[in-house]
């Protein structure tokens, strides 16, 4: 996390704060030019030749829309540096389930990123379902994140990332913390 800075234009946020986004989003590899890190739409990413996808001189991540299945990615998860799950509207919750499945069931080790209509009131949910980073554009959300005001609760009623069992209480309950 050497890139942490106050609030760079990248507006990529993680639990440790804002950081510069090394990735650019592009519709095709050509459009990305010689950018060292790029995120491509799922269909385009799937169409890449294996040697291009696995090239060591650049990182190529994949972006998944809510209506797209993550199934084709599952055999290739080890090779993907970042998966960006989209939230085109705050009320489309499909990407939460995909995040949970990628992290819990399929042990995805790369960066899981939320992109789109990310509102402050959803940040805690995103972190708990397994997102590592959020690409934020909403002004109020940016301000609140800068103030470290995550709108989180002090306790949770479900297992999830960033929490652990609460001693002496029910199996489904959790408290924040690694």
């Amino acid at each position: 996390m050497s890139d942490i800075s106050e609030k760079p234009a990248g507006e990529l946020w993680g639990r440790e704060g804002f950081r510069e986004d090394p990735y650019i989003a592009a519709a095709t590899l050509d459009e990305a030019g010689d950018a060292p890190a790029v995120i491509l739409p799922l269909a385009v990413w799937l169409g890449l030749e294996d040697d291009v996808r696995n090239a060591t001189n650049r990182k190529i991540g994949v972006s998944v829309a809510p209506g797209e299945s993550i199934d084709p990615l599952l055999p290739l998860l080890d090779t993907i540096p970042v998966i960006a799950l989209q939230f085109p509207a705050f009320n489309d919750g499909r990407s939460y389930s995909k995040a949970e499945m990628l992290k819990s069931q399929h042990q995805f080790k790369g960066e899981l990123r939320a992109v789109g209509d990310v509102l402050i009131d959803q940040v805690a949910y995103m972190l708990r379902t397994g997102f590592d980073t959020l690409k934020v554009t909403h002004a109020v959300t940016l301000t609140r994140l800068a103030d470290h005001n995550l709108h989180d609760t002090p306790v949770y009623y479900q297992p999830g990332r960033g929490s652990h069992s609460a001693p002496g209480t029910y199996s489904w309950r959790r408290v924040p913390g690694a």
């Binding site: 705050f90 009320n91 489309d92 919750g93 939460y96 389930s97 949970e100 959803q122 805690a124 949910y125 995103m126 708990r128 379902t129 609760t153 949770y156 009623y157 479900q158 999830g160 029910y170 489904w172 309950r173």
Partner: peptide, 16 residues
């Protein structure tokens, strides 16, 4: 009651 607790602010199922 168990379902009430488990479903309270469920991170995966609040935007169904």
């Amino acid at each position: 009651e168990i379902l009430r607790q488990w479903s309270s602010m469920h991170p995966e199922f609040s935007y169904l």
